[in-house]
Amino acid sequence: MENSVLIRTHDLDKIYSLGLTDLKALDRITLSVARGEFVGFVGPSGSGKTTLLNIIGSLDVPTSGSAEVLGRRIESLSHKESAGLRNRHIGFIFQTFNLLPVYTVYENVEFPLLLQGMESSRRKQLVGDALEWVGLADRADSRPAQLSGGQSQRVAIARAIVKQPEIVLADEPTANLDAANSHHIMKTMAQLNEDLKTTFIFATHDEKVIGYLKRKITLVDGKIAKDETVEKTTAG
């Protein structure tokens, strides 16, 4: 079990300086996430979910304590090293999709592979697979503006998983979707978790997402209030 741990934090603090006062966004967070988990940080706004997700994704560094992702200490990574970690091992899914509007669906999904310098034929195969997984192979030449919200988020999922990362981080992935699309997206991600054994970590307060989680870590005022394993999914 110990070998399959991908993420480990220990006494992790994150403090933002707000002029004369400091805001403690994370307070002594200690947790571990194993390979293949489908876990979510849940809690109200301001509880520290996104901050924790950003640190795990090497987009931010802790003020004190440690965060280890895939054996790398986040606080000691250079810009280049953290970019490399994100490019090869971590996929991101955003609340607002954040596709590059001037590129086609295919090109958006292809982008992370281009950064890896992957050869063309391999890229083509992986992008095709990713679009098949999310059910958008027929929209490869469309531009993001031509897609619905649900389709856009599925493209974002394809972009996150195309490089077959160990970890996918999703920050409020259903916040801009209606209920039907939310369930569709969550089912897609749950299926990918099953098929590819990719670890998914969510930051959410959406009950529709929470219903799919296999592990739920509740944050309140930057502290872990509860860490529970959910025996079976109820949504769907």
Partner: peptide
């Protein structure tokens, strides 16, 4: 987006 996807600064 490019940073998040893993492009170096």
């Amino acid at each position: 987006i490019r940073l998040a996807v893993g492009e170096d600064k």
